[in-house]
């Protein structure tokens, strides 16, 4: 089915150490909670007295993830990279609360994500799937308004704001079937932004886009992070990850091979080990290009 399932050989038992060995010394273990920071999250209820973060704690999924621990921070763009079948999409869906790990936990602001009501979770975490399905030929405005479903309102202001943020105002009344691929991707991202989530989790949002649209869309995502959202992207294109992410997680066969600043995490040696291809970076940090093979 999914390419993640191609990877059956991972023994969950061997994995715990690999998850911990790369936790990059950030002292953000999900166990530690700071009541002071809880106020940063929107509706902070008494049981959610954690720091504002989205954390995986020793997450296992049979055959897909083998002990992933990572704490993600708001205001940052985090890229999840790895070869096909490494478990990137699975990890993203676990972080979004859409897949329940076999063991381990995902914590939102210190509270287990499965303890949240689905609508509360949906208000906090916006998820952009890879397939970009739009079953019915809605207008762009109605498509974007779907992002307001967890809030139970039409969200006129937020929808208008999201349309404006992605330069879609002139398209608002057009049926989505008349959009180009790039416009469609922008409309789908606007749908997520309209919900004003604190976390934006996107699976390969740039995969089907040409160069110009890729750069435009990633600029929008970086802007969302500057505005305070946590942005987590599954990215195939390592150059996009190294140039635009604040932090990169590299997955290899369901394990965390690196979790660090992009220049460190995507070290050519590590790329060689994980992807099995000799590689080197050209250019300066922020303007890197990858030569592989």
């Amino acid at each position: 089915m999914t390419r993640d399932e191609a990877n059956k050989g991972v023994g969950p038992g061997e994995s715990v150490s690999s998850g911990e060995s790369v936790s990059s010394g950030e002292s953000r273990s999900p166990g530690r909670r700071s009541a002071a920071q809880a106020a940063l999250g929107s509706g902070s209820s008494p049981e959610r007295t954690g720091r504002p973060e989205l954390a995986a704690s020793d997450v296992h999924m049979a055959g897909r993830l083998a002990g992933i621990s990572a704490a993600l921070r708001p205001g940052e763009v985090t890229a999840i990279c790895g070869p096909n079948g490494a478990g990137k999409s699975t990890l993203l869906q676990c972080l979004a609360g859409l897949l329940e790990p076999d063991s381990g936990e995902v914590l939102l602001d210190g509270a287990p994500i499965r303890s949240l009501h689905p609508r509360e979770r949906a208000r906090a975490i916006g998820y952009l799937p890879q397939d970009g399905e739009i079953a019915w030929d809605l207008s762009v405005r109605n498509l974007v308004a779907l992002g307001r479903l967890p809030h139970g309102d039409g969200g006129g202001v937020q929808v208008a704001g999201a349309l404006a943020a992605l330069d879609l105002e002139s398209f608002a009344s057009r049926p989505v079937s008349t959009l180009s691929g790039g416009e469609r991707a922008r409309a789908l991202l606007a749908r997520v932004l309209a919900g004003e989530p604190r976390w934006i989790l996107a699976d390969e949002p740039l995969a089907a886009l040409d160069l110009g649209h890729q750069l435009a869309l990633i600029a929008h995502l970086k802007q969302a992070a500057r505005d305070g959202a946590g942005v987590v992207l599954v990215l195939h294109d390592l150059a996009l990850a190294i140039n635009h992410a604040d932090r990169v997680l590299v997955l290899d066969q369901g394990r965390l091979a690196a979790d660090d600043a992009p220049e460190i995490a995507l070290d050519p040696g590590l790329i060689g080990r994980v992807w099995g291809v000799p590689a080197r970076w050209l250019g300066e940090p922020g303007e890197r290009a990858l030569v592989a093979g």
Partner: peptide, 20 residues
């Protein structure tokens, strides 16, 4: 109706919008 609207974006996206 609202759940059906959310399904426009596919099953996984509908769940991510809080639809049970």
């Amino acid at each position: 109706g609202r759940g059906l609207d959310a399904l426009t974006l596919g099953e996984v996206a509908a769940r991510s919008l809080g639809v049970s």
